[in-house]
């Protein structure tokens, strides 16, 4: 038991009994799990399952009803600099008067102190981050003049500029072009190589097995969590999606998707 706790203390993220509500009814109930270092974790569940809510509650963006969130063994509040967050793209107004480089520079604000101003060093880091997502040529482009995929990559670059160890990404693949999808997955692999941990809300079941080491199935409550080939099974998906899984019908044509689990 003691042994186990020591291992858990080092885990990048440990969530214990997390519940959250917007109105009276909880939309997230008693979720507990612990993530291993250097893993890419896919969070899967139907629309309105509370995936975004789970991230926001873990990051303290919305008040939580109950629960504890430990980042590398300490409360999240003491570890903010270790955590990067890529919100859903629609969460901001892209008509804001600013350019791509400037948005990425915001990733350094947490390191700047209360009155510090971003200077040459911050801009260099931001530029480097933009280059990593293949957006260096768009640094001075007004953000409303970027395509959806490019905006998504700017958000990713901002998270990179935060230089965190644990990343939360909310549907980074939603509505992006093929080039962006490729850029994001290359980036995820790169982060993994550096020993960083990334938790990704994902909606495309067809790519889950290819992208993620572990899978977390969520529908208000935690349905299952573990290595992808153990958790990403027809029964558990059926249970999570409650029979609303049109995908399963199509899967007969791509029977190899579930070939690993008979």
């Amino acid at each position: 038991m003691e042994q186990k706790q020591r291992v858990e203390a080092k885990a990048p993220l440990t969530i214990q009994g997390l519940s959250a509500a917007y109105q009276k009814k909880p939309v997230l109930r008693n979720v507990s799990f612990s993530v291993q270092e250097g893993e890419l974790v896919g969070v899967i569940g139907p629309n309105g399952a509370g995936k975004s809510t789970m991230m926001k509650a873990a990051l303290g963006l919305i008040p939580r009803l109950s629960g504890e969130v430990l980042v590398y063994g300490k409360p999240y509040k003491q570890q903010r600099k270790l955590v990067g967050y890529v919100p859903q793209r629609e969460s901001v107004d892209w008509d804001f008067p600013t350019n791509a480089l400037d948005v990425v520079t915001m990733g350094r604000y947490g390191h700047l102190g209360w009155f510090g101003r971003p200077g040459a060093k911050e801009r260099a880091i931001a530029m480097e981050s933009l280059a990593k997502v293949g957006m260096a040529d768009f640094a001075t482009r007004q953000i409303s003049q970027l395509s959806g995929g490019q905006q998504q990559r700017v958000f990713l670059a901002r998270a990179l500029a935060q230089d965190a160890s644990l990343y939360f990404m909310d549907e980074p693949f939603a509505g992006v072009d093929a080039a962006t999808e490729k850029a994001i997955i290359t980036l995820l692999q790169e982060l993994k190589r550096q020993g960083k941990t990334v938790i990704v809300v994902h909606h495309d079941l067809a790519t889950v097995q290819e992208y993620f080491d572990s899978v977390l199935l969520l529908n208000v409550e935690l349905q299952a969590y573990g290595p992808t080939d153990e958790v990403f099974t027809q029964e558990l998906l059926q249970q999570t999606y409650g029979g609303r899984l049109a995908f399963l019908d199509r899967s007969r044509n791509h029977s190899d998707i579930f070939a690993t689990k008979g």
Partner: peptide, 14 residues
């Protein structure tokens, strides 16, 4: 600037 553009991110960095 940050709370005008992205208050969620601002809260995230403390």
């Amino acid at each position: 600037k940050l709370i005008s553009f992205d208050p969620g991110f601002a809260r995230g960095i403390g």
